[in-house]
């Protein structure tokens, strides 16, 4: 498996020109407009959601421990 990584890396280098040939037209979709700031918002909201869910889980766990007594 480990031997495959350099190979995969070299292969990835060849995909570089594909990326530079990105479509020249603007795709009229929400996530692809306005300099794609919505993508950043989605990422940041995902992180926030993860942190909040973590806090809620901690909250529940501690509440459960409190009720044990």
């Amino acid at each position: 498996m480990k031997k495959l990584f350099p190979l995969a890396a070299i292969f990835l280098l060849f995909t570089q020109p594909l990326l530079s040939q990105a479509p020249k037209y603007e795709m009229a979709q929400l996530m692809r407009s306005d300099g794609r700031i919505y993508v950043v918002i989605a990422v940041m909201l995902a992180i926030l959601a993860g942190l909040i869910l973590y806090l809620i889980r901690l909250d529940r766990k501690i509440a459960k421990m409190e009720n044990l007594k």
Binding site: I37, V40, I41, M44, L45, L48, I52
Partner: peptide
């Protein structure tokens, strides 16, 4: 409030 901050803060 935090969700509002992230959305309104960036847009």
């Amino acid at each position: 409030l935090l969700v509002y901050t992230f959305i309104a803060g960036l847009l």
